[in-house]
């Protein structure tokens, strides 16, 4: 399958990306790892006429310790997350979940920024970032702004990013090497989650998030509140589907997804919160 024709521009700086987006508007797309965009282009579900290839923007590939938080460049690949010593020490949950994305080939090329900007509720990293209360730094024609992950995801493949903006940095708190558990239910090893459930401790609270249980990544607040008020893991996990809008597709009905969310949250709580 061959995508529709486009003009290919390899960019060398963030400024060049911003200028390109300003010039071509919604005709242009940033190409990062291409692990979501190229499949869509091959199916002609996406037909950008200009691709700004940011794949060699090494300046935006880093994981650095900023004292009270960690900063990750948007072009940091999943592979770099899953092998990072700094993350192992300071944010083990993010490192662990990154290792669950797709397969080795996908993780060699896909980036954290691409996962966030793509806004797919079936992706793994957006859920962990929402539960971490991460912040996203975005550059646009009128400068930079910092957005809370809680308000960033708007709907299926829809985010706060405008057509003229680029995500440049992801900031996460230092949660340490604490226990975490991610249960990803799928049919083929490399696939997206039919439902995913994540639990970990951060800043003295229990965090629980769900993948593919709505049009955006979901923080399971009902479960978190139940835990905070002393409920058992079983009682708290019973609240997993509260407030979700589980999709219905060839893999699972909404009711089955709701069932899975309760079962998987229970397993994740038992493993992570001991």
């Amino acid at each position: 399958m061959i995508p529709a024709s486009f003009e290919y521009i390899r960019v060398d700086s963030t400024e060049q990306v911003i200028a390109g987006l300003a010039e071509y508007g919604d005709e242009a797309k940033i190409l990062a790892g291409g692990m979501s965009l190229i499949p869509l282009m091959k199916l002609r579900l996406a037909t950008p006429t200009v691709l700004l290839d940011a794949g060699r923007l090494d300046d935006l590939s880093y994981i650095s310790d900023k004292g009270d938080y960690l900063a990750l460049g948007a072009l940091t690949r999943h592979r770099d997350l899953e092998t990072s010593d700094l993350l192992a020490k300071e944010c083990a949950v993010l490192r662990g979940v990154a290792a669950e994305v797709g397969d080795n080939q996908v993780r060699h090329r896909g980036t954290i920024g691409g996962s966030v900007a793509h806004g797919d509720p079936a992706s793994d990293l957006p859920a962990v970032l929402v539960a971490l209360e991460a912040e996203f730094v975005v550059e646009g024609p009128s400068g930079s702004r910092t957005l809370a992950s809680a308000n960033f995801f708007k709907g299926f493949l829809e985010t706060e990013l405008s057509e003229t903006e680029m995500l440049t940095e992801i900031r996460v708190p230092k949660t340490g090497a604490t226990n975490w558990s991610y249960h990803k239910f799928n049919r083929r090893a490399q696939d997206w989650a039919i439902v995913g459930a994540l639990a970990f401790r951060a800043q003295d609270s229990s965090r629980v998030a769900l993948v593919n249980m709505g049009s955006v990544p979901i923080r399971a607040t009902a479960v978190e509140q139940a835990l905070a008020s002393g409920a058992s893991h079983a009682e708290a996990a019973d609240q997993a589907a509260v407030g979700t809008e589980a999709p219905e597709d060839s893999n699972a009905s909404s009711a089955y997804r709701e069932h899975l969310s309760r079962v998987l949250v229970k397993r994740a709580l038992d493993e992570a919160l001991v």
């Binding site: 290919y8 390899r10 190409l31 291409g34 692990m35 190229i38 499949p39 091959k42 691709l51 290839d53 794949g55 592979r79 080795n104 080939q105 996908v106 060699h108 090329r109």
Partner: peptide
Amino acid sequence: TVLVDGESAKSCTMFAAQAD
């Protein structure tokens, strides 16, 4: 699957231009 700069990648999901 081929190696691009030493790492496995699916060559059906990469543009040749990216490997320039």
